[in-house]
Write a protein that binds this DNA or RNA. Sequence first.
DNA 1: ATGAAAGCGCTAACAT
DNA 2: ATGTTAGCGCTTTCAT
Lengths: 355, 355
Amino acid sequence: MGTRGRVTKVSVADLAAELDVSTATVSRALNGSPAVRPELAQRIREHAEARGYVANRMARALSANVSRAFVGFVIPYVDTPAYSSVAAECARLLSADGTQLILTITENDPERELHQLKDLVASRVAGLIISPSTHILEASKQLLSNLPVVEFHRACGIAAPGVFSEDEQAMSEAVLHLAALGHTRIGYLGTPEALSNGAARLRGLHRGLELAGLDRGAVAMRLLEPTTDNGKRGVRDLLDGSRPPTALIVGGGALSIGAAQAVHESGRRLPDELSLVVYGHPSWFALSDPPLTRITVDYQDLALRAARLLNTVLDSGPARGGEPEPQFVTAQLHLAGSTGPPPKRAHASDRKSRR
Amino acid sequence: MGTRGRVTKVSVADLAAELDVSTATVSRALNGSPAVRPELAQRIREHAEARGYVANRMARALSANVSRAFVGFVIPYVDTPAYSSVAAECARLLSADGTQLILTITENDPERELHQLKDLVASRVAGLIISPSTHILEASKQLLSNLPVVEFHRACGIAAPGVFSEDEQAMSEAVLHLAALGHTRIGYLGTPEALSNGAARLRGLHRGLELAGLDRGAVAMRLLEPTTDNGKRGVRDLLDGSRPPTALIVGGGALSIGAAQAVHESGRRLPDELSLVVYGHPSWFALSDPPLTRITVDYQDLALRAARLLNTVLDSGPARGGEPEPQFVTAQLHLAGSTGPPPKRAHASDRKSRR
DNA sequence: ATGAAAGCGCTAACAT
DNA sequence: ATGTTAGCGCTTTCAT
């Protein structure tokens, strides 16, 4: 008995007919309206249960013409902790409210993104949590401006609230840490300035240099899209010159993975021959030896804030009022075994010879 | 111009009124029905575009009463490559058909799972891609049996097709590899037999032992839920005895991470003092030194098959006909630097003394 | 080739 | 407290 044969096809009308009451009463009972006699309500609910009735969210949403049935979750990638852990947490938090997450992956392609945003609008999502692609289209911004939106990780200049990691300080600390150890030639591998977080990290870098009294020109830089391959490429590039940097800072999760590999492959010993500061979720670097000095972000906290922010925005409609206030989760610099004093040139040749 | 002010509220009726045609005609034109005069159709489409019309998928689905608008994606965790990379690929493939993925994370909790399955049914998903929780409830199975379902990674004994990694062979190879190196005391850390893939790996282990002429009793085993912490715990446990194994095989991604860390923390040198075979996505072990001998699965391929299978199932309804044929993606054993001959006891004490 | 109208499953006025 | 009815936005017979 119970839910047999094919997908649920019991409707409110069926229940109403079977119990010889009106659809309205059934609806009220099922939604816990106080307007229905408790005993009747109970009977209706039991019958619904017995018949395996499951309300159709689409019909409900259609009728209510405003519902929190769905929320879009738009990200460039999902197979990286910076996104997957936020996705996990958001799904968790929202599902508690009975809201379902529609997962959408842009692969950082603006066209795909636009297309998917349209689909999301078509699904009448209540709102959107998004980490925009690097070169978002005007049309996409247009769509976003008419929807309750929360940004995270990356901002694209629309009037929406967001949650971001506050990387500037950690970044600047990283520079100061290296400078204090005696490094003067630092290499930086980061994401493009077109990415809001890329820009933020760069600002941190510059601030650190300034505070350390180092010249901007002294920093060799590579700004690349965040992929593991680019991480490798970038590091090889940076280490390749005649006077390579003695320390490397990587500003980006995927880049860091590739970077760490490339450094390892280069055969340089950490921290004796090179200092390295990476960025990202600890799980990625758990196995590295020595443990890497790194900048980490509490993604779970970030997700929590994003979900909360979304709820706020859902209650007040899209981009209303003045400037929405962005929130920040501050990144932390953790010292570990991959940073140390620069190799001393004078002795370096001695050392080398002992090989 | 274009999509101004608030969320799209242009409806078919609006368009019809504005162009002085019937809603039926508009609908036909928009859906490319040949029954409408090309020139008119063109005009309608242009007008719709100009007015920023976006069809309401819910209404459409409701009316059609069967649609591929949504598919549920139900997994225990998402912040692990085994799931996140499959999610990414499935979202990609399905979005090409205009199908959206509703992401649902059970955290391996049967109650949550049931609840979420109900929500998914309520959303009238066309079908489901699921990796069931360890102890799935009967009620959940019940729901699943009335829906087009594709399983992956884990099977829960419903009559649904699925895609799984074929771990038995790789597992058995791993054992033979270790046996050939001379190991006789092997430790195994894996997932519970209640998990279908845990059971499969165990079968592989046993088969390997048999082929190697080793006694099952010779294997110290820990079967734990797949978490990083359990990986650590399990390894500590296994290495703790008076005659600890000389080689460790880990059957599970999250377990492997923890295991590798614990091994590292134990100070044992790989492969001289201990041999280690891990399981999982290469990205997780990219930074380990020495590179780890490991069993890997092509998750992208697996996702591709899952998506294809879903399409098939969607075309034929739930669990119809006889036994659905499961598909397999064979896991591969990659040899690397973490496996070698066991430490020779005779010399072991010598070695120890040199400390 | 086009229109009128019914209905998908539900909720929310508006009665009673 | 319960019933009637009118939609929500779309597709789809059935007419014309």
